[in-house]
């Protein structure tokens, strides 16, 4: 018997549950944009080559264009629509706005979702290709420009907003770090 080519699934997105039937071919990106009217995640290449569709899956950044919607069932999905705290922008969003970390804005939701994860990955002690010594004893260098650039490189920006994006990520990371310190104190 030929297998069924569609399924009814429930997706957990930004704290809401969405139940919908999907064609198995439907990517998470297309489910968000065309079925659930969550168009903040952008389709720049549809091939995992630009990062505009970046969302957080179980708190980790992922390209939603290569994630089948049916395979995303059971995972906690956060999109750009879900990163602000009500009217209060996420520190990364605020820094992008203040420092002009975008021009056309199309790569921006992906850059922001990615940046949020970059700050967390760094805080968790993950090294990057810019890290000279990856041995755990060496620790992970501070989130300086070079580390940010390498870690953000999966997000292309054709307008060339990179310089201010890196500044925005650094500023937001610092703000987040300060908050953590205060929380610890």
């Amino acid at each position: 018997m030929a297998p069924s080519t569609s399924s009814a699934i429930t997706l957990n997105i930004n704290g809401e549950k969405y139940t919908l039937p999907v064609d198995h071919r439907t990517t998470l990106l297309d489910a968000l944009r065309e079925r659930l009217d969550l168009t903040g995640s952008k389709k720049g290449c549809d091939q995992g080559q630009c990062g505009a569709c970046t969302v957080l899956l179980d708190g980790r950044r992922a390209v939603s264009c290569l994630q089948l919607a049916v395979a995303a069932e059971g995972r906690v999905i956060t999109t750009i629509e879900g990163v602000a705290d009500g009217e209060q922008l996420h520190p990364v969003q605020q820094a992008f706005l203040d420092l002009d970390g975008f021009q056309c804005g199309y790569c921006t939701p992906g850059q922001i979702c990615s940046a949020i994860a970059v700050i967390e990955e760094h805080a968790a002690g993950w090294p990057s290709a810019a890290t000279d010594d990856v041995r755990p004893e060496a620790g992970v260098p501070a989130l300086g420009a070079e580390e940010i650039r390498e870690r953000m490189s999966g997000n292309l920006c054709r307008c060339g907003a990179y310089v201010s994006i890196v500044q925005a990520v650094a500023q937001a990371a610092e703000a987040t770090g300060t908050q953590d310190k205060e929380a610890v104190a």
């Binding site: 944009r33 969550l38 168009t39 903040g40 995640s41 952008k42 389709k43 999109t79 750009i80 629509e81 602000a84 922008l89 969003q93 605020q94 992008f96 706005l97 203040d98 002009d100 975008f102 804005g105 199309y106 921006t108 939701p109 922001i112």
Partner: peptide, 19 residues
Amino acid sequence: HTRVEGRDKVTGAARYSGE
């Protein structure tokens, strides 16, 4: 001056042509 549509762009609210 920051962009007047900037908030829409950083929150994903700005709708582009296919959206």
